[in-house]
């Protein structure tokens, strides 16, 4: 065995612990889930499981609750993705202009992203509480009318988005800030010498050069939005009247509360297909713009 081959082998050996876990916790469950999606399997009657082909998928497409959950997920993604992009970019621009204390602000802004969803959800449940929550307390003090943040069917989803934004936008802004700082200063200097306004610099220099990272944020935020579960499950339990119950929560309830594992697995594959389609379209459209 030559030295190069040996080096390669050592490299693979370093990967082995991760690969073992990857196969056990990712590959095997994916394969099991693929099998589950084509069988009728109720956990309380596992011995009576049967192969039913695509029936779980066709049932899901005829299921009102599935479409209701899809609608809720869609609403969340529609509100969340543009908000993350705009706010994350705005925050990055702000931090980029800071002459002092940027590192401290960046650390503070990033901090919420380090919390897990359960801690964040419980914290915001207190903020949103109708009677004694921070937000309504402030509104009352200012002479306003309290807002039914989580208990009104129309308000609940924007409230879930608000919490999700607080939780994740810091991470996005740090990523965008890093990309901003990679842009060579000479571009801005040259533009200024040529008499470019701030608006011109932002739209003609910054945005085109940020496109790859914005594409990354766009695609990853879309995928994360399609997978929304913890935020709504903790804040609203999916209510009121299922207004915030997304596809993942419906899949979880079907499989783990209703014990219909086959049907739950089919829903998860439909979600995967939707994510794949949307992500591919986004990636293609934005990539062509970046390259163009």
């Amino acid at each position: 065995m030559n030295a190069r081959r040996k080096e390669e082998l050592v490299g693979y050996l370093f990967l082995v612990p991760y690969l073992v876990l990857f196969v056990i916790f990712i590959i095997v469950p994916v394969l099991v889930s693929a099998w589950l999606s084509v069988v009728q399997l109720d956990l309380t009657n596992a011995s009576k499981s049967a192969f039913i082909g695509a029936q779980n998928f066709t049932d899901a497409l005829k299921d009102d609750f599935f479409w209701q959950a899809t609608g809720a997920t869609g609403r969340f993604a529609l509100l969340m993705v543009p908000s993350v992009l705009v706010l994350g970019t705005a925050m990055a621009l702000g931090m980029n202009r800071m002459a002092q204390g940027r590192d401290m602000v960046r650390a503070l802004v990033y901090m919420p992203s380090m919390l897990n969803v359960a801690a964040t959800g419980i914290l915001w449940q207190w903020f949103f509480n109708n009677e004694f929550g921070l937000f309504n307390y402030t509104i009352r003090k200012a002479g306003g009318t309290p807002v039914p943040w989580l208990t009104d069917a129309n308000m609940a989803m924007p409230s879930v988005v608000l919490m999700s934004l607080w939780w994740t936008v810091g991470g996005t802004s740090v990523v965008v800030l890093t990309a901003l700082q990679q842009i060579p200063k000479m571009y801005f200097e040259a533009a200024s010498l040529d008499g470019a306004t701030g608006q011109h610099i932002f739209f003609r220099i910054m945005i085109p050069l940020l496109k790859p990272v914005l594409l990354f944020v766009f695609v990853t935020t879309t995928i994360a939005s399609f997978q929304m579960f913890g935020q709504a499950a903790i804040l609203t339990g999916g209510g009121p009247t299922f207004a915030t119950r997304g596809v993942v929560q419906y899949m979880f309830e079907t499989a783990f509360n209703g014990y219909r594992f086959g049907y739950g697995a089919a829903i998860s594959w439909l979600l995967f297909a939707a994510i794949l389609v949307f992500s591919s379209i986004q990636a293609r459209v934005l990539k062509s713009q970046v390259e163009g």
């Binding site: 509480n129 109708n130 009677e131 989580l150 208990t151 009121p240």
Partner: peptide, 13 residues
């Protein structure tokens, strides 16, 4: 009102 969510909390307060 339904969106008030007082319920048990309202009773204990």
């Amino acid at each position: 009102p339904a969106d008030n969510g007082l319920g048990w909390f309202g009773f204990r307060t």
